[in-house]
Amino acid sequence: MHLTLERRKWLWGYAFIAIPFLFFLAVRIGPTLYAFWVSFHQWDPIALDRPWIGLDNYRDLAQDKVFWKAMRNTWIYVLIGVPLGLSISLLIALGLQQIVRWSGFFRALYFIPYVTSLVAVGWVWRWMYMPNGLINEVLGFFGIHGNNWLGNPATAIYAIIITTVWQGLGFQVVIFLAGLESIPQDYTDAAAVDGATGWQIFRHITIPQLNPTIVFLVVTGVISNLQVFTQVRSMSSQGTGGPLNSTISIVLYVYQKAFQSLPSKMGYASAMTVVLFFIILAITVVQLKVLQRDTD
């Protein structure tokens, strides 16, 4: 009796997941395996002949200085961008939740950067960062000497991270709000009646209750920052991850090798994709293991 019930539940599970799973198999996993296959070739989409070269692409990768530079930069994007973005957005979300009047207006205010196309705002940011731009004018007002923020290899990557954080906030705030508002009000009420301070409530109720949301945002934040591309392309000098590769990210380098280099080094780009894939996979699995608490 118990077994059949369990089995019937399994069947429902398989039925529910069947269509999405087949879809992912065909549209995502298949093409991913194709990229794996391509990575063992000297592959140019245009050429007639695409010879198998085994692990050569991977061997070249290990010695490619620009690749390692991109790898390092990508970690800077992740290790600075993700914590910065998450902590700011959590603060904003907590604040927005407390707003009594015009809460919709305030939320829209923080959401808007996310809907604005980077092509259009990219130059606004470049305009603010340029040596005779707004940021330097403001700094100059306080007597601080300006800087060519995007043109200086020491600062360019941080300038881009600020833009990335700015753009991602709207997304994270909305998800945090959805998470916060799924926390049953009576939990916090009860704690307040018991005399808990705001900090205690935050520490012992809000954060644990928010765990699935935080897991989601950390994991997706890390994944998307590991794949940072558009922001670097539209902000960095010449759009090539400069100056002197100080802002180049792995995906931008993948893109350059696959589609800008002549002849296209699609095989090489695929090898990078494969490496990136396993890095992200390993990190994600670890994150899920460490962060996830079973709420059952």
Binding site: M130, P131, N132
Partner: peptide
């Protein structure tokens, strides 16, 4: 000293 990188973008 007649020019600057990134001036006016």
């Amino acid at each position: 000293g007649v020019t600057q990188n990134g001036f006016e973008t």
